[in-house]
Design a protein around this nucleic acid. Structure first.
Lengths: 143, 143
DNA sequence: CTAAATTCCTATCTTGTCAATAGGTAATTT
DNA sequence: AAATTACCTATTGACAAGATAGGAATTTAG
């Protein structure tokens, strides 16, 4: 598959946090239970979200995690691009990839570049707020 | 990256065959030399293209491979969907995946399904003919 | 009929990532 | 002081990517 469980779970965590935004800091244990995902595994995932400024955590009793921006201001792209290790169309377009000497004559490069843009644009259209409200069938897409 | 070298190389093979369509059956050796890719590796890749009815090969002297349909009638999607082992948004949507009991309440499922459609639609817009003509900068997208 | 060319088939190898588990340390509150 | 919680580091098993290698089967040319 294209999006790993890491990305999928990260999104579910973000949505869960959005759905319990009134509770302040939410312990990961609760998220893990509600989502039916191993807490230990989620730790590794949420670490990425913390490092990239999407959520913040505080330790100790009454600690937990909370979103750092409004759910309406966080897109699926923000989350996926941070959790998926190399979310680029092809290796040639990965950051740090060696310069390809065929680039000038490559018949497929423009398509891959377009695809990269499309990824950004597609997932940028879904916000955490929109996704969090999808439970009973409304569309998650913002109008 | 999202599309493996297998998919990328397959596309380049198809484009190369389209560019030498006048020559009848084209030996893989020539394709490999022109493209700068190991012939042995290409063998494994073109096998998939043969099995899926995109090209046909005949053995012996003067043998080689040729496209089975018009370049204008083959899309990038046709090629990629056959060479990439699991070109689906997420594991839940892979053929043969176990039924997910969260499907009914899954906040992200609709987005993944949309993404699957988008993949098909995006790569379906690029034909081998269009890509084969991109060498000197015209757009590969059909109007 | 033989030799060359070519596809086709099977097996192996290395490397890396995913997906997950485990055991602990540091900080905070009650 | 004890409980809670985030944070850190290491390890494991399974699997796919990305090749490489050697040979068997088929066809044509001479």
């Amino acid at each position: 598959m294209i999006v790993s469980t890491k990305g999928r779970y990260a999104l579910r965590v973000m949505i869960d946090l959005a759905q319990h935004i009134e509770d302040g800091y939410v312990p990961l244990k609760e998220v893990a239970e509600r989502q039916g995902i191993s807490e230990k595994y989620l730790e590794a995932i949420i670490k990425l979200l913390v490092e990239n400024g999407l959520v913040s955590g505080i330790r100790g009793k009454n600690g937990g995690y909370k979103l750092l921006r409004e759910p309406s201001d966080i897109t699926a792209w923000d989350v996926i691009s941070v959790t998926e290790s190399d979310f680029n169309a092809v290796a040639c377009l990965s950051p740090g990839a060696p310069v390809c000497d065929r680039a000038r004559i490559c018949a497929t490069l423009p398509m891959w570049m377009d695809f990269n843009e499309e990824l950004k644009s597609f997932f940028g259209r879904y916000t955490i707020e929109g996704l969090a409200g999808t439970a009973s069938g409304e569309t998650a897409l913002q109008k």
